[in-house]
Amino acid sequence: MNIALVLVCAMLLDAALGEPRWLWSRVPHPAVLMGRLIGWLDRSFNIGTERRAKGVACLSAAVALAVMLGIAIGALGPVAEIIVAAILLAQRSLVEHVTAVADGLCRSVADGRTAVAMIVSRDTSDMDESQTARAAIESAAENLSDGVIAPAFWLLIGGLPGLLAYKMVNTADSMIGYRTPRHEAFGWAAARTDDLLNLVPARLTAALIALPAKQFDAAALRADAGLHRSPNAGWPEAAMSRALGIALSGPRTYNGRLQDFPWVNAAGRRNLTAVDIDETIVMLWKAWALMLVVSALFGMLFL
């Protein structure tokens, strides 16, 4: 079975089963194991001098371990590859988390804030309905890229070793890739490598969102994406904002400090509700379906 058909099967398995709580409440999820490894490397080597060099060495060792593990699992055959790939894709899980915010907002703003606090890092305690919905939609767009399309892309490019290497880098970035006194040097390699690995997938995600919505305007997407503080996250956000006719990004609070970020698709509607989250979920599935079709076509071409 070629790798494109492995991806197709993995995407379908993930969509059907998601993250079974009965399983991951008993054994650690692979992403959790990766996080434990990165945490141990951070505690053990993010000390003293030459922290940037140490960060490069630690990331290289972690990625090498991921690649070797991918090769070993791949040797077990396509069934093992499909299962592991499905575990590391997050479409069903993403939809469930975003749906929880919409359901919460339908009950009360407080319930919506509680749900969105599970998926964003910004301050949520004083969010109104629009801010809560906007945070959920932004998280949905970004995580479609990081959690679904990018892993699928790197599986197609590098097989299971490529997927595991990407997930290791992405996990490292989420833990140590920050410009803080502790991590600016040690996490430099993780942050820069994650930016590089997401360069193509972020733009691919934007296309997968924009095409079904018939809102594919490359120049407009590029302009809006350039307003975002991230070199990659702005692309899926720009595409989602135009697909729904809404404004995303804008001012928000982190650690008690208001950050005056520019609006993405500033002309879009700014009063958002749970209905907009529901429409976002539809767009997530349309983008997923388009990726599935493209992967299936590749799989059949190279049979």
Rank of each mutant, 00 (worst) to 15 (best):
W288A: 04
F153T: 11
L221Y: 06
F186H: 00
L41C: 10
M118C: 10
A100I: 04
S145G: 14
N2K: 12
G55R: 00
V101E: 07
N2I: 03
V264Y: 08
L301R: 07
D42E: 11
P231N: 01
T132I: 07
A189P: 03
L94H: 09
M300R: 12
N265F: 13
L164K: 01
L301M: 12
G299V: 02
P251V: 08
A150S: 08
M11I: 05
V32K: 09
I82H: 06
D128Q: 12
N2Y: 09
R92V: 13
E96V: 08
P20D: 01
V79E: 13
W288H: 12
I73L: 09
L204D: 01
R182C: 03
F153K: 06
G77T: 00
A219V: 15
W24S: 03
I149F: 12
R122T: 11
R222P: 02
N46G: 06
V56C: 00
S230K: 07
G256Q: 10
P20C: 09
P251T: 06
W40S: 06
I47E: 10
V79L: 15
A202M: 10
V27H: 00
M1D: 04
V200H: 13
F153A: 08
R122Y: 08
V148G: 08
A61S: 08
S25L: 04
L272R: 00
A213K: 00
A213M: 03
L301C: 12
R134I: 05
G299E: 09
N271C: 13
A238R: 03
P236I: 02
M127L: 14
A75L: 10
G256E: 14
K167A: 02
F186C: 02
A225S: 10
N143H: 02
A190C: 07
A266M: 12
T273A: 05
A190D: 02
A238T: 08
A287L: 09
A206S: 09
R192Y: 13
E129S: 14
L105G: 15
L197E: 05
M34L: 14
A207L: 15
N271I: 15
F261H: 07
A61R: 08
V169F: 01
W288Q: 08
V169S: 00
A136M: 13
L248H: 01
L33N: 00
A239D: 14
